[in-house]
């Protein structure tokens, strides 16, 4: 009888050799993420020096954090950013679930081409599609121009420079992050389950709620978390579509880091954002247990 290891056809590596193989990745993560993160943390505790932009690292203080937590403006901005990120995640999932299901079950031969089209925003980067959106959503853009031409509105709808516009832009940018995990999960579940439900008389609504949604749940959670985190830290889309009029946490961090050059405060804003991301991950993992 063959041992499972032999059956798998693999050969086991000695512990030293496996360490050697993961070492490059571990070093990369440590150097590219771990050390800068520690620096960020240290910088967020530095104290500002009167009349200078060079922070004093020898005198740690929590002043930057108390400025964020003790000020309605920053807390409101954090709440707005979280709400916009949640709306983006919800919007992406609502669009991604039927789209992924259709791609998995019905697209047939066109699937490859259609999946490539869905992934296109990832290949273009954030800037080009966002600039395209400015032309669509602007006061002189396609949407307002069409509505005005049809006589439906007298003055252009304010789509740019609003939270709604930013959420539209973020959904457009991050939809692939939601489609891919759901598609991967649906691909792994045999279509016969859904066919059996229909044969047994399930209505379409019941099929979606009782069969497809629970099957896709892990994909929905993974996609939701990816979109939420990307939206929370997004900078380009809120900056361009928001026209600098809607404050988000990432924009405040940019403003403080690169325009005001208050690096301790900018670092504290970034650390707060990271804390929000960690919290989002914890919430998602606990939701994973609540599979419907």
């Amino acid at each position: 009888m063959r041992s499972p290891r032999e059956a798998g056809g693999g050969t086991s590596l000695s512990p030293t050799l496996s360490l050697l193989f993961i070492a490059p990745a571990a070093i990369l993560v440590l150097a590219a993420f771990g050390l800068p993160f520690l620096l960020l943390l240290a910088l967020s505790l530095a104290s500002p020096v009167e009349g200078s932009l060079v922070p004093d690292m020898s005198n740690p203080t929590l002043a930057a954090y108390s400025r964020i937590l003790g000020d309605g403006f920053y807390l409101r901005t954090l709440a707005t950013t979280l709400a916009m990120s949640l709306a983006t995640a919800a919007g992406c999932l609502a669009l991604a679930l039927p789209l992924a299901h259709w791609l998995a079950r019905r697209a047939g031969r066109a699937r490859r081409v259609l999946t490539a089209i869905v992934l296109l925003p990832l290949a273009c980067g954030a800037l080009l599609p966002t600039l395209g959106l400015v032309h669509l959503l602007g006061p002189l853009g396609v949407v307002n121009g069409t509505l005005r031409g049809l006589g439906l509105i007298a003055s252009p709808l304010p789509l740019l420079g609003t939270q709604l516009g930013i959420v539209i832009g973020l959904i457009q940018a991050f939809l692939p992050f939601a489609v891919l995990p759901i598609l991967a999960v649906l691909d792994r579940t045999p279509p016969v389950i859904e066919e059996a439900a229909i044969t047994l008389g399930a209505t379409p609504a019941r099929l979606w709620v009782r069969i497809i949604l629970p099957l896709a749940w892990p994909g929905l959670l993974a996609g939701g978390l990816l979109v939420f985190c990307s939206a929370l830290t997004a900078f380009v889309t809120p900056q361009i579509v928001g026209q600098g009029k809607v404050a988000t946490f990432a924009m405040l961090a940019y403003q403080q880091a690169l325009q005001v050059l208050d690096w301790p405060f900018a670092s504290a804003l970034a650390v707060t954002m990271l804390a929000a991301l960690a919290l989002a991950a914890v919430v998602t993992f606990s939701l994973a247990r609540l599979r419907p």
Binding site: L252, Q255, Q259, V260
Partner: peptide, 17 residues
């Protein structure tokens, strides 16, 4: 220049906000 940090906050709140 000395007022910059404070004025940035005021601009965010009182002009943009």
């Amino acid at each position: 220049i000395e007022q910059r940090p404070e004025w940035t906050e005021r601009w965010n709140r009182e002009i943009l906000g």
